[in-house]
């Protein structure tokens, strides 16, 4: 990486971040399954859907592994709906309508909920920009200093001088 490329790297990093968020939003859409066969859906098919859901009774435990009776019933409901030929997205929509937004593992990227996907990448990009600006400024200052003298005082000296300065300042303040 050359010196000039570094800002570019930052930019790419920022884009990657934004990109990764775009992915999150599309998570529900990408798993659209073809219409299932008439046979009873297997446990694995049910779990694949349940994995992205949470029931309000046992907070923070994903539906596919939650051991409570309520969650068992929910899984059976998913099985019923899948057997009726519903798509995965249909099931999510039905559950949201019945039990509210919080059944989904991540808020659907619509309306106010877009905020959750937009805010972090924007803020992170802003943070990168700010730091990049800061570094550029510091570097400009640094070049100005080092242009004259190649040698900077060695570290122990630095510390020594800092201490000395400190002591002097203290003396000036009179404590």
């Amino acid at each position: 990486m050359t010196v000039k490329q570094t800002p570019l790297f930052l930019l790419v990093a920022a884009l990657a971040i934004v990109g990764s968020f775009a992915q999150v939003g599309s998570v529900q859409a990408q798993d659209a399954t073809p219409p299932p066969p008439a046979a009873t859906p297997s446990d694995d098919e049910v779990n694949a859907v349940a994995k992205n859901m949470y029931c309000p009774v046992c907070e923070n435990v994903p539906l596919d592994v939650c051991p409570t009776l309520a969650c068992q019933q929910w899984r059976e409901l998913i099985r019923e709906k899948l057997a009726a030929g519903w798509s995965e997205q249909d099931v999510y929509d039905y559950f949201v309508l019945q039990y509210g937004d919080r059944v989904l593992a991540a808020p659907p990227p619509t309306g106010l909920n877009l905020l959750i996907y937009i805010a972090p990448p924007v803020l992170i990009a802003a943070a990168f920009y700010v730091v990049w600006q800061m570094m550029r400024r510091m570097r400009a200052a640094g070049n100005a200093v080092t242009a004259g003298s190649e040698m900077q005082p060695a570290k122990p000296k630095d510390e020594y001088q800092a201490r000395l300065e400190d002591e002097l300042k203290r003396l000036d303040r009179g404590d």
């Binding site: 990657a16 990109g19 992205n52 949470y54």
Partner: peptide
């Protein structure tokens, strides 16, 4: 728009958002 509905923010959000970082 402001339904006051509680949302769940599950692993999928954190994993995808922090993974590249």
């Amino acid at each position: 728009i402001f339904t006051g509905q509680k949302a769940t923010v599950g692993p999928i959000f954190y994993e995808r958002a922090t993974g590249p970082l």
